[in-house]
């Protein structure tokens, strides 16, 4: 074929096809993710626009779920799960991102602010077998891999929960919470010390 058409440069065509695939593939994946989110969140009372679920997700809603705009759920080795029991309220603000394996469970009230980031295997549950108390995560919070947030905790704006920590007390704004049980330290001091 190539010998008959000497003007067609096969590598150039392949490169062009590769570029086309690179530009089209993310959009196609995003479209599929948005359709999947529509299906998964079909019995959610209030769902924002442009919610995308890039992988499987288990959603169980017996209470009230309020999800904001432009949420992202990333797929991975284990599905994330959102559980809202009867009479409970689960609120998630806009542009919040979830990695795989995140587990959110609301018996009474769990509220997550806008632009938060949840890494893989993060667990939030407002009942621990002893008592039930609402969890509040304010805006711009970053919860790193494998952190567990216990009932009754309020995490302040722009705070960071370090990987693998177990948060049992309130975290003020602009604070790094790390360890088991989590100790709070000012993000101002930590960032100056490590240069990040």
């Amino acid at each position: 074929m190539t010998s008959r058409m000497p003007f067609v440069r096969v590598p150039a065509v392949l490169a062009q096809l590769e570029a086309l695939r690179k530009s089209v593939e993310p959009r196609a994946q995003r479209a599929v993710a948005m359709v999947r989110a529509r299906w998964l969140f079909r019995d959610v009372q209030s769902l924002g626009h442009n919610v995308a679920a890039y992988g499987p997700l288990s959603v169980h809603n017996a209470g009230e779920m309020v999800l904001g705009d432009r949420l992202t759920f990333v797929g991975g080795m284990l599905p994330s799960s959102l559980v809202c029991h009867a009479g409970a309220l689960l609120t998630i603000g806009e542009e919040t991102q979830f990695n795989y394996g995140v587990s959110l469970e609301a018996w009474k009230s769990v509220s997550v602010g806008a632009r938060c980031m949840f890494a893989s295997f993060v667990r939030l549950g407002d009942r621990d077998g002893h008592h039930t108390a609402p969890i509040v995560i304010e805006d711009d919070v970053w919860v790193a891999h494998g952190a567990i947030i216990m009932p009754g905790v309020r995490v302040g704006t722009r705070s960071v929960v370090a990987a693998g920590s177990i948060v049992t007390q309130d975290v003020p704004p602009d604070t790094l919470a790390m360890g088991n049980p989590a100790r709070n330290m000012s993000l101002e001091l930590v960032a100056r010390d490590t240069g990040s």
Partner: peptide
């Protein structure tokens, strides 16, 4: 099982994430 090894934090603690 289920260990995580990463050589980058991926996001800075403060500022533009």
């Amino acid at each position: 099982a289920f260990i995580k090894a990463m050589d980058n934090q991926h996001h800075p603690l403060r500022g533009n994430r």
